[in-house]
Design a protein around this nucleic acid. Structure first.
Length: 529
RNA sequence: GGGCGCGUGGCCUAGCAUGGAUAGGGCGCUGGCCUUCUAAGUCAGUGGUCGCGGGUUCGAAUCCCGCCGCGCCCGCCA
């Protein structure tokens, strides 16, 4: 028999009796009534038939006792240790500053890594630095051939004009393509001069990207440069010999033969013998597979077909590797697609700046001390940005609108952070020895909040198994919203002592839990707002 | 043309994997609530052909088929 979660006001669990009715050829309402009369269990305080449903009410005291005990002793936050896993995210071409579209990848990836870590995996976060391909070659060509007045700004902003200018030149004069191909060819063969300038400029752009992400609480354990695995790529190609087919000097794999639909050929080598991205990506995943059997890539929806193909090939070469991907859709602007090349972008740094300005404007009359302002501004702005992105299911497209991003009411991080600050404030004002009695818990809002808190482990499990950080974002909001109900209806400090102590325990548990959940989203929980 | 994804009030969005009881939230707009723990809060009102059509089922936003709209991919780019 399957029991479902019930809707509000219909208990905690429910058993619809329709299928039983069919089997037994009896009225479902009658069956429900019979079942309800027969069942008795200490974990349920009420079992009742309502029409064709049997509704179960959980024993609230027992649940309250367990939930409080487990949260306050950290027991609820423990998950069994699991194996190694590598989460790869961002991996943006280092040709310019990070824009908001790309940032969706970073924020989702970073939160996923946090969730996986909490769930018990030993997580390593990697950034695959694409320094070999055409984009970077185009940047290098621009740096060598175009004269631009350099501004004294961070690397990603300093060099992106070369990239944009090079693309403009390329569109005007397709012959430049050959020069760019030559750069690729030389670079792959380890040309000293090129490697040196690549290291300097690409490294500098990358530093800028890293800096931007650090500002919103995103860090990497490892940057793997694509150029470092050209040799591995050739080894891989050797192992794939029986699948390789030639076309005019270039080599490809027949995807139809592998059962991949939507594309016929996956080219691995150019006619000039240089490797192509798919081959290097396969090599990369095999190397990752040596470190961690489990791998998750956070990828834009444009990579779906590519991923399908390389997953298949990686599987041929090492069947133990378990490779999954979390796909997300692009962030658009109201006027259309973002594009670094055409300069139609909102950069992450500008978003952060604007968001911070908005926060400052709101808090200017709230009596913060000078030295507190910067800290709290950053915490709230970062939270607002991260939550705004995480609150939308990954696969859904989203349109970036300033008015929405800068709205700190309703479904937003500041709303959630605010509940944490409220809880903190109550605890700070209370003179409490930590003792409480379950017997004093009875208010419906207390019970509702505790029931929601009890779902924490299943929420983490769900988010981890489904590779969906947004599950945690929804949960964070639900918790905060429920806490506000409790806050409204259940005075803590002014209640009779036993009730007060029980409520203090609930507030303390909530504070711990919401802080933990926010941390899984990469959002800090301020003590004061 | 083929493959994949998305389509829920004016706008954003949950629910779809595992079909069930009046489709949850938020923004916006209108009107209330600070002599009680932080009003970034809260309450009420407003607003819905769950893209369209068919099918399966006692029951479909959810599953199946067809269609329409939008996005992405189908490169010796990455």
């Amino acid at each position: 028999m399957e029991v479902d979660e019930a809707k509000e006001d219909f208990g905690d669990f429910t058993l619809p009796c329709f299928s039983l009715a069919k089997e037994m050829k009896k009225n479902p309402a009658l069956i429900a009534k019979e079942i309800a009369e027969k069942l008795k269990d200490e974990y349920f305080e009420k079992i009742e038939a309502v029409g064709p449903y049997v509704n179960f009410w959980i024993n609230a005291k027992k649940l309250a006792e367990l939930t409080l005990k487990e949260i306050l002793s950290e027991e609820l936050f423990k998950f069994p240790k699991k194996e190694n896993i590598i989460v790869e995210h961002t991996s943006a071409n280092p040709t310019g500053p990070l824009h908001v579209g790309r940032t969706r990848n970073s924020i989702i990836g970073d939160s996923l890594a946090r969730i996986m870590r909490k769930y018990g995996y030993n997580v390593e976060v990697q950034y695959f630095v694409n320094d070999v391909g055409k984009q970077v070659a185009t940047l290098l060509w621009g740096i060598k051939n175009i004269k631009i007045e350099e501004e004294n700004v961070r690397g990603d902003y300093r060099y992106v004009p070369y990239y944009q200018a090079a693309y403009r030149e390329l569109e005007k004069n397709p012959k430049i393509e050959e020069a760019i191909q030559e750069i690729i060819w030389k670079y792959e063969r380890g040309d000293e001069e090129l490697r040196k300038i690549a290291k300097k400029y690409v490294g500098s752009v990358l530093k800028g990207i890293e800096e931007s992400l650090k500002n919103i609480n995103i860090h990497f354990d490892n940057f793997v440069w694509e150029s470092s695995l050209v040799n591995k790529a050739r080894e891989v190609a050797d192992s794939l010999k029986e699948y390789l087919k030639e076309d005019n000097g270039a080599f490809y794999i027949d995807l139809k033969e592998l059962g991949v639909e939507g594309k016929e050929r996956l080219y691995l080598f150019r006619r000039d013998g240089t490797t192509l991205y798919p081959l290097r990506d396969i090599a990369y995943h095999l190397i990752k597979g040596e470190k961690a059997r489990k791998n998750v890539d956070v990828l834009g929806e444009d990579h779906k077909l590519h991923f399908q193909a390389i997953k298949k090939i990686v599987k041929i070469l090492n069947k133990d590797i378990e490779l999954d991907a979390l796909f997300y859709s692009f962030v658009n602007l109201p006027e259309g697609k973002m594009s670094t090349r055409r300069g139609k972008v909102v950069y992450l740094d500008d978003l952060l700046k604007e968001t911070e300005a908005r926060v400052r404007d709101i808090i200017k009359d709230r009596g913060y001390k000078e030295d507190e302002i910067e800290k709290i501004t950053r915490v709230i702005a970062v939270g607002a940005i991260r939550f705004h992105i995480l609150n939308v299911q990954e696969e859904k497209p989203m349109t970036f609108r300033w008015e929405d991003a800068l709205n700190f009411e309703g479904e937003s991080a500041p709303f959630i952070q605010y509940t944490h600050a409220r809880a903190t404030s109550i605890l700070q004002k209370a003179d409490w020895d930590g003792e409480y009695s379950i017997e004093s818990i009875s208010h419906p809002q207390e019970i509702k909040l505790l029931k929601l808190m009890a779902k924490y482990p299943s929420m983490v499990e769900n988010a981890a198994e489904r590779l969906s950080p947004y599950v945690m974002a929804r949960y964070a909001y639900a918790l905060a919203s429920q806490f506000n109900q409790f806050y409204r209806d259940c005075p803590v400090l002014n209640s009779e002592e036993n009730v007060r102590n029980a409520r203090l325990a609930i507030v303390k548990a909530f504070k711990k839990l919401i802080k933990d959940v926010l941390e899984l989203l990469g959002i800090e929980a301020p003590e004061k707002m």
